[in-house]
Every structure is written in structure tokens, then in C-alpha cells.
Design a protein around this nucleic acid. Structure first.
Lengths: 101, 101
DNA sequence: AGCATATGCAAGTCACGGCTTGCCTATCAA
DNA sequence: TTGATAGGCAAGCCGTGACTTGCATATGCT
């Protein structure tokens, strides 16, 4: 039985998606086009708009960003709460082995 | 320019590797064969010994486990310190956009 | 209405990662 | 020394995921 939070870790596995989170950390609530432009100029990311859009879908599925529609704009907001579960998962309640007293 | 800590996130991306970390959290300092056995019995992981060994290599490269050789045994110890950087990376110092005051 | 802007959908390509298979090395016990 | 145990190395298969390309939809401005 594998865990059911794979989406979160999968989302963080891609370096471009981590840069997107970085961008939203610095400036929350950006649109797709804004993110594309900033990734290109500030981080030399040459991916297409569709590629970034797909990344945003993955991040949203992981619960790391929430979106808000307003007219033809779609604003992306960061939600870092899921990240806490990562550190908390492997808190040591270690029962040492005989070889490691 | 992408980040240089990709190994950490890549290591966490695989569900079997996360289970290995779970196992070491419960009982630190296990050998490869111990981990294989416990993954099989407790978590229904049917991967081969070589597969688990490769996973351990990835986790070690990510700095999440450290190994200690003793005779023909190799003990694997958890090191959760790299995990802190994940939560800390996206701490909000947000400059809100005009659309998100 | 007509056009530009902002985003969505879908199929196809291609490289990488997880896993297996097969064989090899090293340590310890009888 | 022989056999069993613990682990390592390398090549190959194969599915998944990141990216592109092409087209479609929707909103707003003039």
C-alpha cells in the first residue's frame, strides 16, 4: 500500500514547478502570462505557455496553488500548507536497532 | 537557472522511497535485506533487492540517509535535516499584486 | 461586429527513471 | 576451503511525464 499524497511530491519533483512556486512566493496572485514572462526573464526558463499551464495544473492538483477566475484572467495563489505534512511525516520516533544503540 | 537541490525533491518523488523513509523512521539503522523484508511484509512492496538498493542510493545522494559499513553489513540511518529546507523555501514574504490586495 | 488578449484542450514526440536480469565481489561460519 | 550470506555493477526494457504543435473557446476593447 503506497501513500495517497503522491501528487504533492510529484508536483515538487519538477524544477520548473519549484521556480513557479518561488515566483508566486515573491509575488502572489499572478496570471499565467505574468508567470510565463517572469520565468523567462528572471529565470531563463524557455518553456512554452502551454507547458507552464500544465505545470500550474499539476500544482493545483497537489493543493499548492489555488486559482481565482475574474473575467478572462485567472489568478494563481500560493498555498504552502501542504508542505508542512512533509516535514511532519518523518519525525523521528525511532526505535533503534541492536546495531545502533 | 534551476535550483541545485533537485536531488532532494527527486528522491522524495517516488512512493517506494517514501516508504523506505517511513520504515527507517520506525526502526533506524536497518540493512538492505531488513528493509526489503519489511517492505514486502508490511507494505506489500514486491520490488527486488536491486530495486531497493537503487532507491537507497538515491536517498543517500539526496542526503536523506547516511550509511555505515560494518563487516558485510551496511546500516542505513535516517537524516531528516534536509527536509527542513523544503518548508523554509516557500515562506511567504509576499508582495501582493494589484489584483490581490 | 471585429480583433486582440487570455486561457483551454488534445494528440504526438522523446528522454528519463524505475525495474529487472545476470553476474560479480566480499565477509563470515563450518 | 567450501558454502551461505550481504551487497555491488551494468545493461536493457518499458511506462510515465515534460514539452511541443495545432486548434478551439472566452472575454474585453474600439
Amino acid at each position: 500500500m503506497l501513500d495517497d499524497v503522491g501528487d504533492l511530491y510529484q508536483a515538487l519533483a519538477d524544477p520548473t514547478r519549484r521556480l513557479i512556486l518561488d515566483e508566486l512566493t515573491g509575488r502572489d496572485g499572478q496570471t499565467l502570462f505574468e508567470i510565463c514572462g517572469r520565468l523567462a526573464t528572471k529565470h531563463q526558463v524557455g518553456s512554452s505557455r502551454q507547458a507552464i499551464s500544465q505545470h500550474l495544473d499539476v500544482l493545483e492538483a497537489a493543493g499548492l496553488i489555488v486559482t481565482r477566475r475574474q473575467g478572462r484572467y485567472k489568478f494563481h495563489h500560493l498555498d504552502t500548507r501542504p508542505l508542512r505534512s512533509i516535514t511532519e511525516r518523518w519525525l523521528r520516533s525511532t526505535e533503534p536497532t541492536r546495531e545502533n544503540p
